[in-house]
Simulated assay, not measured.
Amino acid sequence: MTFKKFLGQLHLILGLMTGLVVFIVSITGCIYAFEHEIQEISQPYRWVKEKGTQMLPPSKIKEIALEATDGMLVRRIYYEHPETSAIALHYADDAPYYYLTFIDQYTGEVLKVKNLEKDFFTIILYLHISLLLPYGKEIIGVSTLLFLVLLISGLYLWFPRNKNKKAVRQKFKIKWKASWRRQNYDLHSVLGFYTCWILIFSAITGLVWSFEWFEKSYYYLLSGGEHLKKSELQSKVEEGASINTPMVDRVWQKVLADDPEILGITIYLPISPEEVITTYSSPDYGTYGRLDWRYFDQFTMEEYPALDFRGRHEDATVAQKIMKLNYDIHTGGMLGLAGKFLMFFASLISASLPVTGFLLWRGRSKKKRQKSSHRQEKIYS
């Protein structure tokens, strides 16, 4: 068996093994591509009119959110833009709720309390990352890893044996006037070739979230041999101390004062005396590549340096900036709306590859059975 035949068999086996998962992940990624834009249009409670007055501080937003939800634990507060509502995120490790409270950040009016368990895009997201199954994240991770092998092997198989100009040109276009089997082959081969360059990056950035060993290996390669460290920061707690809520407001004010270009800021509220106050802010709306992550002691307001890539953007190395861009690369948001369209069509084609691949395998299997039966007829005739 030649290497190309072996690779063809491997490509077939891995395709049959992962086809259904790749289809689900791709089609949900396709639907989720414009989640941000669709929600902005369809959910008017996300928008407020900038009043030219001071925004309400996190402690006040938390107080309003607690009252609106009968005391549901508030874990984060988002100020995404001067013209959007502040959002309180409610969830608990041992409770079945996962809610958002939308609040006018200038007047304090509660605009919407939303149960994300019933939210369309939340369901699509969890289908994308876990198939809504126990151990679904692991299944997605393994399938994505095999899909990466499929893309690389498919790229190798695409290269024509015949190097004359006509044969090479045919590899770049679909022969629409040919039989449906030929069209199916071209849809799999030609579209697969065009999109594999995008899907390889999509698979790699997806694997960064799937496996810690992959994230560490990826960073090691990007940084030229530097090991990825995890930030495990704690506040300096004195005996008998309780959560220092007013300090959250002071941290919020400091972060805003330090950088006048900030459009949005998110506050992670500490729920124990040991936790630090974590914030991330950005000069951009809707993308996450230039986030500034900062960490403060909730009692002394001492700022701690980040140990991993989640730190100040201006201090980040090239490898750390690439890691910060991981989400924007994965979604295409790095290139703006054009990048999202690109990722939308790439995901759509990715969803078609298991289908055209299956039809290709089924057609060839049927053809082999027909040839085998013809041979047997000749022997016994």
Rank of each mutant, 00 (worst) to 15 (best):
S242F: 06
T18G: 10
A351E: 03
G332A: 06
L291K: 12
S372A: 14
Q43Y: 04
K367T: 08
E226P: 02
S373M: 07
H81F: 07
I87W: 03
Q9T: 13
D94A: 12
R369P: 00
Q376W: 04
K60R: 15
G289Y: 13
S59M: 07
H313R: 05
L66F: 06
V190T: 11
Y91G: 07
Q54G: 09
H128D: 10
E63Q: 15
T278C: 03
S42W: 00
H128G: 10
T300E: 07
S143F: 12
L66Q: 14
T18L: 02
S202G: 05
S189A: 14
E80W: 08
Y79F: 15
E35T: 11
E215G: 06
K367Q: 15
S210Q: 05
L89Q: 13
T245G: 00
H188V: 05
I64G: 05
M55S: 11
H128R: 04
I174M: 03
M334L: 15
S143P: 00
Q9W: 15
I198L: 14
G108F: 10
P354I: 08
E314H: 13
F159G: 03
G339C: 08
Y380Q: 09
A241S: 14
V255N: 02
Y106V: 10
M323N: 10
Y280F: 14
L127S: 05
A88T: 12
T18Y: 02
M301A: 15
W361V: 11
I262R: 12
I140G: 00
L100N: 14
E109Y: 01
W47F: 10
K324T: 03
K216H: 11
S272Y: 03
A86P: 03
M301C: 08
